[in-house]
Design a protein around this nucleic acid. Structure first.
Length: 448
RNA sequence: GGCCCGUUAGACAAGUGGUCAAGUCAUAAGAUUUUCAAUCUUACAUGCGCAGGUUCAAAUCCUGUACGGGUCACCA
């Protein structure tokens, strides 16, 4: 079996163009055996055939007596080629559409399907093989043991099987995967590589989702027991998960962005801060110039930001995608901070300006940066109490008139002054990432 | 239209004749927290597309039917 990660690819070459020689040899062999022939029908000829078939309610296709070029003599064919008539090579089918054959699919079991009787094109007029032919030749010479492909290929399985047989080769096993669908105008349809940009993993990377997150999501669709596994093992390591072809659902799943976000958040939250930084930079350098500039300014500083409440059992889950980082993190940087506050500070209008001023002024002179998180927060409570803010919510609720507010309000003043936002990550960590001068400068600016 | 595949809650999905039809995401309510991100608790299919049948017993077996998807290219 050949495939990603299994060996180094010892059955090459792998480039389509380099394989051309192989296809030619096989085609020659087929022609010699009478299993393939050149066809000179133009697309108009083909249309004509189809029209006749449709009019007489016959199965459309190039087969039996409709396969005109099948009956050309060698001389006629040579004559046509000499006259530079464009041609394709078709496989000469000996199947009968009325015969049913039983094919086996690794995930669907047995499927009864009509034998192929159509003379499919195997070499196009541009000299390139069609998928049907390339699949048969490639997977034979690469000694593929199982081919996994989309469900849309089931109907052409008889063609492939017939070709393997005609060439005297053993056919591989097949596993046809359900298609991923998307909703369009209320209808489901398969996600198409050509029509839908989101069919490519790179699309999600452009959107800022980590590639690994997308892969994890895809695995959750592919194997129904994967989610349970991630919970049991507290891991999203795809390499450790044992993929089971039988744990595969048979019908096509709708692509679910919510779920992608969920997995992506879980995955990103479990990364080390350094990994987060380098992945974010990788993304930003290509798609997010603003973020790139911030990261490159000082990677150590940025990593500190990424590390906020990360190194613990339940890490923060702020980011589902790298493009979420910039808006959350920008206030750390002075130029960005200045832009944010150019529209004013969103202080709570219910608290008087001079109270805010007093509390924050006191904070500047009294804050002790050496305290641990718990002690620091207690000191913030104490600061609040000094100016009439309740240190716990219950006391405040029981006696609202007695207080100006709660510690939450005190924390909020500080937050607004330091970040220009009502929401931010844990203040304690912000205070330890920003330097003291910046903190004091920002507070002073906010209360002037 | 012919042929294939499928149909369990808003999404994904377990379930292969026998207690209340797993679990995850989403949603809602509550708790908790200095805000947020979270976290915790609870709620969410008298029902397994529909109709018949077999059986003491069916989401699970049979028949029919509807709906969805795929395919019928010198595209993969």
């Amino acid at each position: 079996m050949e495939g990603y990660g299994i060996d180094n690819g010892i059955y090459g070459p792998y480039e389509q163009s380099e394989r051309a020689e192989i296809y030619k040899i096989v085609i020659k062999e087929l022609i010699k055996k009478g299993l393939a022939y050149p066809c000179f029908c133009s697309s108009e000829d083909l249309d004509e055939i189809r029209e006749v078939q449709e009019a007489t309610k016959q199965i459309p296709g190039y087969y039996g007596s409709y396969a005109k070029c099948r009956y050309l003599t060698v001389d006629e064919a040579i004559e046509n080629i000499k006259n530079n008539k464009p041609y394709v090579i078709r496989f000469r089918s000996s199947g009968n559409h009325n015969n049913k054959i039983r094919v086996h699919d690794e995930i669907r079991g047995n499927i009864d399907i009509a034998e192929n009787d159509i003379d499919v094109v195997i070499l196009k007029s541009d000299g390139l093989p069609t998928y049907h032919f390339a699949h048969v030749v490639d997977d034979h010479f690469m000694k593929t043991t199982i081919v996994t492909r989309g469900e849309e290929w089931i109907s052409s399985l008889p063609i492939h099987l017939e070709m393997f047989k005609a060439l005297g080769w053993d056919a591989p096993k097949y596993a046809h995967l359900p298609l991923i669908q998307k909703l369009e105008n209320g209808n489901r349809r398969k996600l198409s590589k050509r029509k839908d940009p989101e069919a490519a993993v790179t699309f999600f990377f452009e959107q800022g989702y980590p590639v690994q997150g997308v892969l994890i999501y895809l695995m959750s669709i592919a194997n129904s027991n994967f989610e349970g596994w991630t919970i049991e093992n507290k891991s999203f390591d795809l390499d450790k998960f044992k993929f089971d072809i039988h744990k595969m659902s048979l019908d096509g799943a709708l692509f679910d962005l919510d779920k992608l976000s969920y997995f992506s958040k879980e995955y990103l939250s479990k990364l080390k801060a350094e990994e987060m930084t380098s992945l974010a930079l990788e993304y930003a350098s290509q798609y997010d110039k603003k973020l790139e500039a911030l990261i490159n300014k000082d990677k150590v500083f940025f990593t500190k930001i990424m590390n906020i409440e990360r190194d613990k059992e339940n890490p923060r889950k702020d980011y589902a995608k790298f493009s979420d980082i910039y808006p959350i993190v920008r206030f750390f940087y002075d130029e960005e901070y200045n832009k944010i506050i150019s529209n004013g500070y969103p202080f709570d209008p219910n608290i008087k300006k001079d109270v805010i001023k007093k509390v924050l002024t006191d904070f500047i002179s009294s804050n002790d940066y050496s305290l641990n998180e718990q002690d620091w927060f207690n000191s913030l409570k104490a600061l609040g109490e000094k100016y009439g803010f309740a240190s716990d919510r219950k006391a405040y609720k029981a006696n609202k008139d007695k207080y100006l507010g709660t510690v939450a309000d005190v924390a909020s003043m500080l937050r607004v002054a330091l970040t220009g936002n009502k929401n931010s990550p844990n203040l304690y960590y912000i205070l330890h990432i920003l330097d003291k001068d910046t903190i004091n400068k920002r507070i002073n600016n906010a209360i002037k």
